[in-house]
Computed example of a mutant assay.
Amino acid sequence: MEGTIIKGIGGFYYVKTEIETIECKPRGKFRYDGLTPIVGDRVRISIEGGKGVIEEIFERSSELIRPLVSNVTQAFVVFAAKNPDINKDLLNRFLVLCEYNNIKANVCLNKIDLCSEEELRKFKEGLNNIGYELIPINAKEGYGLEKLNQKLKNNVTVLCGPSGAGKSTLLNKLTGKTLMETGEVSKKVGRGKHTTRHSELIEIEHGFIVDTPGFSNIDITFIDEYELQNCFPEFKDFNGKCKFSSCVHNKEPKCAVKEAVEGNKISELRYDFYIKTLEEIQRGKKRKW
């Protein structure tokens, strides 16, 4: 039989097949091959003595480290309009991570009752200009969730974003169940309590959804300095048009991306974030040497 690993606890993996969910142990060969089954894996299993055994792990289309989950096809990147305020640097990091892993990013702006129509318009316009859709929602009231439900079909969707943005509330609303605890935003530090405990695929709308722990920062400096430019959709029309084929759009002369920034075709703020990240990657590379 074939199926999908929806949960892993203490060396046991729960595989959902077309018929039922079966508790399985992996073959010892995976340990020798340095391959560990993870949530999201498509697998082939057999039954021996009434027990499930994972025989094969199929090739992964994507693999995230935090949460440790494979074959994700899209992300709901959840940020709150206020309380806590939007950290645009962190938002950019999530977007870059999605692009690097070939995951479609949908930016969900929660708590929209806390912002003005003009603030919402500007934020939506800024995202549209760099190639992303903004979905305004109010998870607590259920506003905007119909559109998200439509996007869940035939996808493995990951919820990501900072603590306090309302991811657990959103997950509970989408599933119609209290699957994850919700925590109030700490007034002292301006972020939510870390309420999510583990990763688990939940079947919904002919697809799967997985929640992630909230966190205040993510590291993207593992990305190669030459690959980073491919994680910015707005650079696409200009990559490869520079004077030098090895151009990383920083200090090189006759750079098409820099000219696009000067001509207001690329956001200066996004370009500044790109340079900041590029320099972090290059500094890390030097330290390794």
Rank of each mutant, 00 (worst) to 15 (best):
E56V: 14
L97I: 11
K241T: 10
S46N: 15
R44Q: 14
L35R: 12
D89N: 15
N217W: 08
E20V: 09
E133N: 15
V43H: 07
L134D: 03
K7A: 03
R191L: 05
R42L: 11
V15R: 05
L174P: 01
S246N: 15
K7Q: 13
E141N: 14
E133Q: 14
C242Q: 02
D219V: 01
A80Y: 10
Y274G: 12
K147V: 15
Q229V: 04
G164S: 00
G284F: 01
R42H: 13
E252A: 02
K147T: 15
K265T: 00
A80H: 04
A165P: 12
L68K: 15
D224S: 13
K243T: 07
D219I: 05
Q229N: 03
E181S: 10
Y132Q: 03
K193P: 00
L120E: 02
K104Q: 14
N172M: 07
L159W: 01
G284K: 13
N101Y: 03
M1P: 13
I204V: 15
E59S: 12
G50L: 04
G126V: 04
E59G: 08
T277H: 02
G240M: 05
L179Y: 07
N128E: 15
Y100D: 10
L134I: 12
D41S: 09
V257K: 05
C98F: 01
P37F: 06
K288Y: 12
K187R: 13
T277W: 00
E48G: 04
T17K: 04
L201H: 06
G8S: 09
G49H: 06
V156Y: 06
D237Y: 05
R66W: 00
G161K: 09
P233R: 09
N155W: 01
E146G: 04
A256Y: 04
V77P: 01
E48A: 11
I38K: 10
E225Q: 08
E181V: 01
N87A: 06
E63P: 00
E23F: 00
V261L: 14
E23K: 12
C242T: 04
T21R: 09
V15P: 12
I220R: 11
N71P: 14
P213W: 05
I57K: 01
V189C: 02
G28D: 08
R283H: 05
P233W: 03
I135T: 10
K241D: 11
K7I: 02
K177F: 07
E56I: 15
